[in-house]
């Protein structure tokens, strides 16, 4: 543990100093430690699609925190799309977003069947939990809803990634995220699907000094940068979990 911390600290210091040097660069340094992007679960459908040169259709099912106010193209689903297109020049990558604003996981699952049928995604990235946490929905009910949703997505032939809550230090006195984080981890384990731990990643950035999430009125810039970083981390995570070798994909061409 301690050694791990020391290494992380050393790395972050290195990154930090680089970040200072390139302060004018629009893209912030927001590296994610490897263990937060490693997963035992495999996205088999995504892997097959990439190897077979079939289009990769990704559906992001999310709530309000999957968007930024009045700034399209800058939220993480679109940053994910452009990062994947960069990394996978041989494949067609399409990201679609379905927003369920002010809906609990249970309510989000309600109309899910139809959407899955229409879009037939290869991969669903389901970002959820925040609204349930603000409403302090019964955690068991939340778990059942997530479980049901994941089962439906898998039955529709899609790979699934769960994405948990944002790390939000300013609301820690008011929102208790831990039961929802725990239950999402449990559902991911039960279904053997990858969990993108947005909470831990953002907390890591905060501790590292990449971002100051305490700032009371940081404006829209912070949100844009965070979404850029989430999108990039997510692209790494998708490729990692699909177990594809980027080099191989390119040489096969």
């Amino acid at each position: 543990m301690k050694a791990g911390y020391a290494v992380a600290l050393g790395l972050s210091l290195l990154i930090g100093s680089n970040g200072l040097a390139a302060a004018d660069d629009i893209k912030p340094t927001c590296d994610v430690p490897a263990y937060l992007l490693a997963t035992d679960s495999v996205l088999t459908k995504v892997g097959e699609a990439l190897k077979a040169r079939q289009p990769l259709d990704i559906l992001v099912l999310g709530s309000r925190s999957s968007t930024i106010m009045a700034a399209d193209g800058t939220s993480y689903p679109w940053r994910l799309q452009s990062a994947l297109r960069d990394k996978l020049p041989a494949s067609t990558v399409n990201v679609a977003v379905e927003l369920r604003v002010k809906k609990t996981a249970k309510e989000a699952v309600a109309g899910l069947g139809k959407i899955l049928e229409e879009r037939k995604p290869t991969l669903v990235i389901w970002q959820t939990g925040t609204f349930d946490a603000t409403r302090s929905v019964d955690p068991d009910e939340f778990r059942d809803a997530v479980n049901e949703g994941v089962t439906m997505m898998q039955a529709a032939g899609a790979d699934v990634i769960l994405m948990n809550l944002q790390y939000s230090p300013r609301t820690e006195t008011m929102i208790s995220p831990s039961p929802y984080l725990d239950h999402m981890r449990v559902v991911a384990q039960q279904h053997d699907i990858p969990l993108f731990d947005r909470f831990a990643i953002m907390r890591h950035w905060n501790e590292n000094g990449d971002f100051d999430f305490f700032s009371p009125s940081p404006g829209i810039e912070l949100a844009k940068q965070v979404h850029e970083c989430i999108g990039r981390a997510l692209s790494v995570f998708v490729i990692e979990a699909a177990r594809v070798n980027l080099g191989e994909l390119r040489t096969q061409r």
Binding site: R64, K102, T134, F213, P216
Partner: peptide, 19 residues
């Protein structure tokens, strides 16, 4: 929290502000 409600303006957390 009333104080926070009037002083906190962060587009990143508009969903969390639903609390």
């Amino acid at each position: 929290i009333s104080y926070v409600a009037t002083s906190f303006e962060n587009p990143l957390y508009s969903e969390e502000m639903g609390i």
